[in-house]
Design a binder for these strands. Structure first.
Lengths: 167, 167
DNA sequence: GACATCTAGTTGAACTTTCAATCATTCTTC
DNA sequence: GAAGAATGATTGAAAGTTCAACTAGATGTC
């Protein structure tokens, strides 16, 4: 717990676990993406329309959506263009702030999502849920929540309090 | 537990945990990548030279390496070209099989890796390890190992036994 | 109320990844 | 031992992502 100035290497077990994480997270991403791609979308596109479908009024501001799906704004702009060309989303100026743009899920987008959702759920089960007990899966979720919170708490704009890491 | 033919949706808690996984895995990837990019490499490039450095003789066959880091062969070919241009790796015909190519870490590549390793370890600690207890982290590693095993056991080429999934 | 500063979103070029086609070699099997 | 199938790696074009620069509107400040 004493902060040593120099980076300590990981011990053998940590190293093994870290490698396991890295490898599995990629296998999983690849598998989920492949399954959705048979239906003509990428996972990252699916996420966008899925978030929109759950948002009140089926719309979200570009910046809020970008944060939610962890994509850069620029990437979201380009992806939204693709989705718009397919008729799945539309852009609308957001109420109140004239800089803002709302991305709205169209009826056609909703239908497309409804067609893909069962495929995707089945894929999540087959590639993830089926390999863990309910407890293991829930522990995975909690651990990942802690990680997300931890990372966000160091993000720029977050006031960390007193210098945890003075150069 | 009775296999219903139709996809069951996820229950609210599973959904929450799955979303947490997705979001955190992306925040983590982004954070680790950003930290390495300050030193001019992407995480996926770092992984390649790091695997090479640990391999006996500091070399691996392209196909073995591609599997190890979960990249397509084509992607690895392109990435290896970039690394080769920087003088960090070299290609050599592999012994025995004249179709094969070994990717070898150069002395310069090793030096570069040694320079970046502490940065990367610190980043893994800061973005991942520090947010979990030792037990939680180990459980995460185990869960991810199960997932990797589960996904690979369904991969094409793996004989699954009698038809688990008749059309 | 005008200045700088910050936030929201877009743009196009550069870069990376994917996709389908290709070439060479090895393995099968007949 | 020759034909066909499978494996290893590469190629170049298409598709997707990042990066830096930019426009427009909001916010803070003096």
């Amino acid at each position: 717990m004493q902060g040593t100035p120099r980076a300590r290497w990981l011990d053998a077990e940590q190293q093994r676990d870290w490698r396991a994480y890295l490898r599995a997270s990629r296998l999983l991403e690849t598998a989920l993406d492949r399954d959705l791609q048979e239906h003509g979308v990428q996972l990252s596109e699916y996420e966008i329309i899925s978030m929109l479908s759950e948002a009140p009024g089926r719309h979200l501001r570009m910046s809020a959506l970008a944060d939610l799906v962890v994509q850069s704004r620029s990437r979201l702009t380009h992806t939204a263009n693709r989705l718009e060309r397919r008729g799945w989303v539309e852009r609308r100026p957001s109420a109140g702030d004239r800089r803002g743009i709302d991305l709205v899920l169209t009826a056609e987008g909703r239908r497309a999502l409804e067609g893909m959702a069962p495929v995707h759920v089945e894929s999540v089960r087959r590639n993830l849920l089926n390999h863990l007990s309910a407890d293991e899966f829930h522990a995975l979720g909690s651990a990942m929540r802690s990680i997300a919170d931890g990372i966000r708490s160091q993000a720029p704009g977050h006031d960390v309090g007193k210098g945890t890491d003075a150069i």
